[in-house]
Design a protein around this nucleic acid. Sequence first.
DNA 1: GAGCGAGTATACAGATCGGTCTACTATGGG
DNA 2: CCCATAGTAGACCGATCTGTATACTCGCTC
Lengths: 213, 213
Amino acid sequence: MSEHVKREPDAARVPDAAEAGPRRVPLTPGARKVLEAAGRLFYERGIHAVGVDLIAAEAGVTKKTLYDRFGSKDQIVVEYLADRDERWRAFLAGYLERSRSPRSRALAVFDASRDWAERSLPRGCSMINAHAEITDPGHPAYAVSTGQKAWMLELFTELARPLAPRRAKSLGRSLMLLHEGGLVAYGMGIFPDAIEHARQDARALLRAAAPAD
Amino acid sequence: MSEHVKREPDAARVPDAAEAGPRRVPLTPGARKVLEAAGRLFYERGIHAVGVDLIAAEAGVTKKTLYDRFGSKDQIVVEYLADRDERWRAFLAGYLERSRSPRSRALAVFDASRDWAERSLPRGCSMINAHAEITDPGHPAYAVSTGQKAWMLELFTELARPLAPRRAKSLGRSLMLLHEGGLVAYGMGIFPDAIEHARQDARALLRAAAPAD
DNA sequence: GAGCGAGTATACAGATCGGTCTACTATGGG
DNA sequence: CCCATAGTAGACCGATCTGTATACTCGCTC
């Protein structure tokens, strides 16, 4: 995807999508098939519940190819999360580019999440789900999921800055809470249209914080 | 714990903690040890990552005893979640009883969550974590985690009713979003004091919704 | 004292886990 | 032509998984 998020002069400075870091595994055709199958299976059934034999079979690839490319299941998990994060950031970038006002840019994250969620199974956020399974902070995938959330928090903070410069940190955290709450409520099917509801709450919050914009 | 939540005449009608349902497995001394060990291990390491051999060893009990009491690992998972839910509801009931005004009662849930979270590892909500691992809706534990969240949503709705009778459903959902967001942000270590931050946001929300109370 | 529920100790079954191995094929660039 | 790269096919490894089996002990109660 594009290396740079288009930056308008008056727009808040936002973490670059390219900061996701270089891919560690070259995507040969076989590797691509493995990553596609692993991504689908991990998301649908959970990471621990999916074995490498199944991944290889679903990818139409032998286990030898799988291990030649990735070296270990752990590395497949890392690539799975990094790949989803990368695609999410690219998806989100389109929404941010299309939004002009500071407030609509902040809300665009919720729009993107809602639309992103609608296109797949209602299984919620892959980072949250992965974090629930990977409990060892030393696991190479641990930092990917926590790093993605840290990036999202920084994003919300920077999007909040033009609206409330002195309270950007606090407002960013509030937006983050609503966003994560929406993701979880959606993923667990607690009530319908949870992400849209979170968006409405975020809108009210932004209006209260910066009535002018 | 107590079978009934004390109900003050003017207090909102709140779902009863006893609705959690009767225990399916009689708690013999051996079963109790199994449940204690399983609860600790499941929460710390995740459900799939913990085998029955380890549970039995940590409980100081043989696998035969474990299977005589619970019949299957799935049933241990069910009892684990039901037990945590039961203890959480009892813990929460104490906070609700001590709170008088409608607004402080709603905020008491956040207080309880914050204090509950502080007493254990920062691994977040066991229901959310379990839901991330148990992807099959037919799994007997699936309904326990989703049912717990449904109960929480109903609780927030009833707590919101005295404050905004016509918007109770919507306000309850907003409180739920903040609460779940706080749990996830806390569990993933996104920023410090996430549940307390969620409480502050809930307080502002309640003030805006019902300035009088 | 007979019976029973709850427990120990231990061995075992069948499946699946992540991961390695050898042998062979196809392709494309110096 | 040569050789590295990317792949297939499939056997194999030790470990671990859930779950079962047999044989025995202890304490309580009728």
